[in-house]
Design a protein around this nucleic acid. Structure first.
Length: 381
RNA sequence: GCGGAAUUGGUGAAGGGGUUAACACGGUGGAUUGUGGUUCCAUUAUGCGUGGGUUCGAGUCCCACAUUCCGUC
């Protein structure tokens, strides 16, 4: 079946919305945070642990699985769910982001994009049709349109041309999409240009996708102000009865800012990447467990957290694991950081239902920002 | 006793007269938003065993001493 979004309640004071998303693998409440498992694994966790932290949908990536092990092997295994032994919903990214990160602008043509494999340097060619065909074979529950993801710093002219091409790519992808129980999302681009976001949103919505994403907001070096503008400029043109997905966003503050503006779905590598590099989210801001001050700190990372890591282990022990390069440290922190974001989303959903989203937001910001561990803007003060 | 070699940060060390002592590991911070798993960035010896001397200038050359190692009686 295709996914189905049911809008249940709109917050009285903001654009935040609470809904239910029906999928092939159960119904999930939104807004939702989706952990990222690029290579058919949420790094360091097994599927039982993904479930334990209260996770719903997870992400995987067309580009990476295309290169290794190849979509045919995944198909032979019985599809991505069977291959990785995960019986929850899976969304696959289209490889579009890799256009931004791995290709040169001159390698992008109307037909598709020339990549250099990050594994062996081999020249590869990816098109909208190819991306959709791979995703059909992977048999994910939600596929993404193949898009170009230009930086917000791109000129107005480049951005307009890029967005027009992304829309043509979306049409081509939709035309060949043939997996009956896989949904397909369109992607809105346009940087922080109001007119281009409006154009991208209205034209993409005309194609009638199962959901809509806002992309190009979490590229390296872009300001949070531009991200918030990109959302504000796109949301008014998206239909109420379809889910809205903000791609690549996952700082706690940005989850609140996104929800407030009407976003239903988020994904981000940040919780798991930060974990592997020794950082943890806490209600009092982000901390670096490798810091010497935790050497003899025998308290948990966050005493209010209900995850396996916080219930059983101390900062001093986790620090030791990280410094000694033991993978258990990375695993425990990944579990904690993911649980942290998922729990925030649980609280956010409750607050929307009770029309007290802004109160929760203020409460969270007060605690999270009080030690200035996180800035509300990437711009220096 | 005699002869030879060595002595440079927390560690392994480079440098054999010319500005601020290489590099690596370790230490200490920071970064990370549709993945960078072991990544990236910054910082970390006002000092080269001790004391003299030569020189415009000395880890670098000379002398004495100390310590360590090797050989030998």
């Amino acid at each position: 079946m295709k996914i189905k979004y049911n809008l249940i309640h709109k917050d009285k004071n903001t654009k935040a919305r609470y809904g239910l998303l029906e999928t092939n693998y159960g119904t999930y409440e939104t807004p939702i945070f989706m952990p990222v498992g690029t290579q058919a694994t949420v790094k360091t966790l097994d599927p039982d642990e993904i479930k334990e932290i209260g996770s719903g949908i997870i992400l995987s990536n067309t580009y990476h699985l295309w290169l290794r092990p190849g979509e045919d092997i995944v198909a032979k295994a019985g599809g991505l769910h069977k291959f990785m032994n995960y019986d929850g919903p899976i969304l696959t990214d289209s490889g579009g982001f890799q256009v931004f990160s791995l290709a040169n602008p001159k390698d992008i043509s109307e037909e598709g994009v020339i990549f250099k494999s990050h594994i062996n340097g081999e020249k590869l060619f990816l098109t909208p049709e190819k991306s959709i065909a791979i995703q059909n074979k992977l048999d994910s529950d939600i596929a993404m349109s193949f898009d170009e993801c230009p930086p917000a710093s791109a000129s107005h002219e480049y951005m307009q041309n890029s967005v027009e091409r992304t829309i043509r790519w979306a049409k081509r992808g939709k035309k060949v999409h043939s997996n009956p129980h896989q949904s397909l999302f369109g992607i809105i681009q346009g940087g922080a240009y109001e007119d281009i976001r409006r154009f991208s949103a209205t034209e993409t919505v005309k194609l009638n996708f199962d959901g809509y994403s806002i992309g190009g907001v979490a590229n390296d070096g872009e300001s949070k102000e531009d991200m918030y503008l990109a959302i504000d400029y796109s949301i008014p043109y998206l239909p109420e009865d379809k889910p809205r997905y903000l791609m690549g966003v996952g700082e706690p503050i940005d989850l609140f800012e996104g929800v407030e503006r009407g976003i239903d779905m988020f994904d981000c590598v940040l919780p798991t990447r930060l974990a592997r590099h020794g950082h943890a989210f806490t209600r009092n801001g982000k901390i670096n467990l490798r810091n010497a001050k935790y050497k003899e700190d025998f308290t948990s990372i966050d005493e209010n957290c209900d995850c396996k890591c916080c219930k059983n282990y101390t900062k001093a022990y986790i620090r030791h694991l990280l410094v000694a390069n033991e993978t258990l440290g990375q695993r425990l922190l990944s579990i904690h950081n993911l649980r942290f974001l998922i729990k925030i989303m649980e609280e956010i959903r409750e607050s929307i239902k009770n029309d007290r989203f802004l109160e929760l937001k203020e409460e969270f910001y007060h605690s999270y920002l009080k030690n200035n561990h996180s800035k509300t803007s990437k711009q220096k003060d």
